[in-house]
Amino acid sequence: MDYKKILLKLDEVAELSPGTLNGTESIKDWDSIAIISIIALADEDFNKSLSAKAIAQASTVNDIVTLLTA
C-alpha cells in the first residue's frame, strides 16, 4: 500500500476528512478508540500484530506509518 493510501486509512482511523493528515501531525491526543483502530488496521491490511505499547511509543503519524510498513 502506498504512503498516500496509508494516510487516507489513518484519516479514517482518526475520524478526519480524507486528505487531512500529511504525516507530521502528533498522535499524542488520539484516543483509545483510535489506537484500537490502528491495531485493527495493522491486522487487517498489513497482516501485522501491533502492540498497544509500540503505538504508545510513536509520536507522529509518520511513526505509525513506519510501524505499519516496517
Binding site: S32, I36, S49, I55
Partner: peptide, 11 residues
Amino acid sequence: NGADIFSFTLR
C-alpha cells in the same frame, strides 16, 4: 487497557 486486550485477542 482495551488496546492491549484487543492485541491479545487478535493474537
